Computed example of a mutant assay.
Amino acid sequence: MAELDDVIHQPLRLRIMAALNALPSGSGLEFARLKKLTGATDGNLGAHIETLSRAGYVGVDKAFVGKKPQTTVTATAEGRGAFARHVATLQEIIAASAAGGK
Rank of each mutant, 00 (worst) to 15 (best):
M1D: 09
E3R: 15
D5F: 09
D5Y: 11
D5L: 08
V7M: 09
I8E: 02
H9Q: 14
H9M: 07
L12Y: 05
L12I: 05
R13K: 15
N21Q: 10
N21F: 07
L23D: 02
P24I: 05
P24M: 05
S25F: 02
S27D: 10
G28R: 02
L29D: 03
E30A: 04
A32D: 08
R33N: 06
L34Q: 03
K36L: 10
K36Y: 06
L37P: 01
T38K: 13
G39P: 07
G39F: 08
A40R: 15
T41L: 07
T41D: 13
G43P: 00
G43S: 11
L45A: 02
G46E: 01
A47G: 10
H48R: 12
I49E: 02
L52R: 13
S53D: 11
R54D: 15
A55T: 12
G56T: 09
G56Q: 12
Y57K: 10
V58L: 07
V60G: 01
V60A: 03
K62R: 13
K62E: 06
A63Y: 04
A63V: 13
V65L: 12
G66Q: 06
K67R: 11
K68S: 13
T71P: 02
T72G: 05
T72A: 09
T74E: 02
G79Y: 00
G79M: 00
R80S: 12
R80W: 10
A82W: 04
A82F: 07
A84F: 08
V87R: 14
A88V: 02
A88G: 12
T89P: 07
T89N: 08
L90G: 06
L90R: 12
Q91H: 11
Q91G: 08
E92W: 04
I94A: 12
A95D: 15
A95T: 12
A99W: 09
G100R: 10
